[in-house]
Structures are given as C-alpha cells and as structure tokens.
Design a protein around this nucleic acid. Structure first.
Lengths: 184, 184
DNA sequence: TAGCCTAGAGAACGCTCGTTCTCTCGGGCA
DNA sequence: TGCCCGAGAGAACGAGCGTTCTCTAGGCTA
C-alpha cells in the first residue's frame, strides 16, 4: 500500500473517532507507521491531510449509500434504512463533515469548501431519487430529503440511544414528503 | 451588571461567532472587561464557562422561539418561519450546540450532557405542538419536527446562500408530516 | 572497500493557550 | 495617618502540538 494511502486509512479512523483537533500528527504517524518526514512529504500540512481525509470519506460514504440504495426497489425508503444501519454501527459518531465543520470551519476555508461540496453531491444524488420517484418539484423534495438525512444524523449523534427512532421518524417524514411532492 | 453576567454576554458572542476553541480566556477577559482573576472566580475553568454559555444560550434560544411561535395561529408553520428569520441574521453560524458538540463532545462529558438536555427540551416543546396539532402519535411527529429543525440548521450553516430555501423546504416537509400524522 | 545518498527516529523549536502567581496600587478602617 | 485587604494587570509557567532539523544507519555504486 502506498504511504499516502496508509496515512489516509489511519487518519480516517482517528479523525472520525476522536475528532480532528484531538488527533496530533504524531498520532497519525504512530497509527500509520509512516515517519513524520514522509508524512509531510505526502501532505504538506495537517490542513491538507484533513482535506484529503474528508475527500476520501466523501467518496466512500457516498459509494456505500449508493450501492446499498440502488439494489432496492423503493429507493427513498432505502436511504433511511441505510441510515439506521449506519447509526447502529459501533463507531458511529455523527456526520464527519458536520463535525469537521464545527471544529475547523471557522479557521479553514478549505474545510468549509470540501464540506459544502460533499453536501452538494448528496443533494444531487437525492435529486435523482426525487425525480425518479415522480416529484413535481425534484429540487424541493431533494432539499427536504437532505434536511431529513442531516437532521437524523445530528439527532442520532447527540442521542445515540434514540438513533434508530430518529432514522425511522425521518424515513416516515420522507415518505410523507414524497407523497406530497407527487400529489402536486 | 454582575461580573458573571458580563462574562457570559461577552463569551456568548465570541463562542458562537468564532467557535469555542478559537476563543481564549484572554479574549473573554478583553471583551468583558473582567479581570482574569475574577473570571476564574466566577467560572473555575473554561469548561465551566462553556457549559454556562450553553445553558444561557439554551434559555434564550428557546425563549425566542417560543415567544415568537406562541403568538401565531399555525404554530408548526411558525417554527419554520422563525427559523428562516434566524438563518437570515448576520451573525448566524449554525446551531451553537451542534458546533460545540463537534468541537468538544469528544473531550467533555459535561458539554455532551448540556447539548443533549437542550435537544430534549426542544423535543419536549415540539411534542406539545404536535399534540396540539392533533397528531395521532405526538412523539413521532415531535421527533420528525426535531429532525427537520436540526437538519435545516445544519444545511443553512454549510450553505448560507441556500438558508432560506432550506427553511422553507423543511417547513413544507413539516406540513406534510403533520398531515400524515393527523390522518392515521 | 569507500563514499554518498536516502530515510527514519526522535529531538528541538516556536507558538498558542489554560491556569496560576506576583507585584503594585488604592481604598477603607482604627 | 498608617496599616491591611482586595482587586487588577499582566508576567510566568507548563502542556500540547504543528512543523522542522539533526543525527545515525544502511544500502547502493564505483
């Protein structure tokens, strides 16, 4: 495995689990087995590493969602079933992008930008599902689904015991929104 | 004004605007005009100050929401109209609680706890509105409204240009959820 | 075999910041 | 008037951490 890849795997685990600021470059070095010197050759600063981490997470998170949803007949419902499974994972700690935004958004334009891009990609994907479901206004339904996904994730993070409840409530709200969107 | 109150006013502004970690105790001292020694007499640690900030913010935020909603006839809709106005304020920077959770949740139990309490208070209030609206299952509708409020806030934070769109989309999703909840 | 280049380990540096300490000054009381 | 107490200003301290530097060892080439 490439050095950069090893670093990204280790950093992805650490940053998501413990938060970006709580993880030092030396922790990344120890977990990846890549020396500091080489680490800084691959990523010239911690900010660059964080941006790369978020981009990798975007790709993997979206792929997991999409591959899970695309094999189901009722795709909008499948989104929230996937969410519920995600919320139930042991290391679930909320949305890595929202957390990173809260930690670094005030100090790093680059982080802001990559988070925005991720949410836009998710919005675009949901817009496809909305159109497929027959919404009269797919942009509106996509925005509603995005709000429900992000809201359920925040609620699940703050209150892990109610995570499944939040996912199911969001799923039912999504169904109601789809119904309303198709009736227009 | 009491020293503690002066500190809380200054800290509230700074912590919300720039994030908790980006604001040092010396910034709070400078903004409040209260000496460091007295500051530490009022709040024995930065964590204690952060908790007090969040508790004060909870009280004021909920009061603002409630007083605005209670004078309207259709209260659920009023929640999202209030959100849209909030999102449009100059210094809007997302949900102070979610941001604090992202910044400090991994290191401070106390912060986690106060954020959880705030969301529970909001859920309780929304449950009252859900029951009043005639929902067959007010807990479910309350959870859905909570998810919509938090989701719209996150979306508005990440993409300020689309903040009003997010608030209105959430409001329409809420209306659909109310309709569905009353039809059961 | 001798010299050079690279890479890794980890020490070092500089900065930020939470927290505490010290020094000085002013005001109230005997 | 002289003393004591408290309060404020700000220096100081120590820890954490991003980033860079140094030293050493090992392998490759002539």
């Amino acid at each position: 495995m490439e050095h950069a890849e090893r670093v990204l795997v280790a950093a992805g685990e650490l940053f998501y689990r413990r938060g970006v600021r709580a993880v030092g470059m030396d922790d990344v070095r120890a977990a990846s087995g890549v020396s500091l010197k080489r680490l800084y050759q691959c990523f010239p600063s911690k900010e660059a590493l964080v941006v790369a981490y978020l981009e990798r997470r975007d790709e993997r998170w979206m792929s997991s969602l999409i591959s899970s949803v695309e094999e189901r007949p009722v795709k909008v419902a499948a989104v929230f079933e996937w969410l519920e499974r995600w919320f139930g994972e042991d290391d679930f700690r909320g949305c890595g992008f929202v957390n990173a935004y809260g930690e670094l958004g005030s100090t790093s334009e680059a982080v802001q930008e990559v988070v925005r891009r991720h949410k836009q990609r998710l919005r675009d994907y949901l817009r496809g599902l909305a159109a497929e479901a027959g919404a009269a206004d797919p942009d509106l339904l996509a925005e509603q689904l995005l709000v429900l996904v992000d809201g359920a994730t925040v609620t699940a993070m703050v209150n892990p015991l109610g995570a499944a409840t939040a996912a199911r409530a969001a799923g039912r709200a999504a169904a109601a929104a789809v119904t309303a969107a198709c009736r227009e």
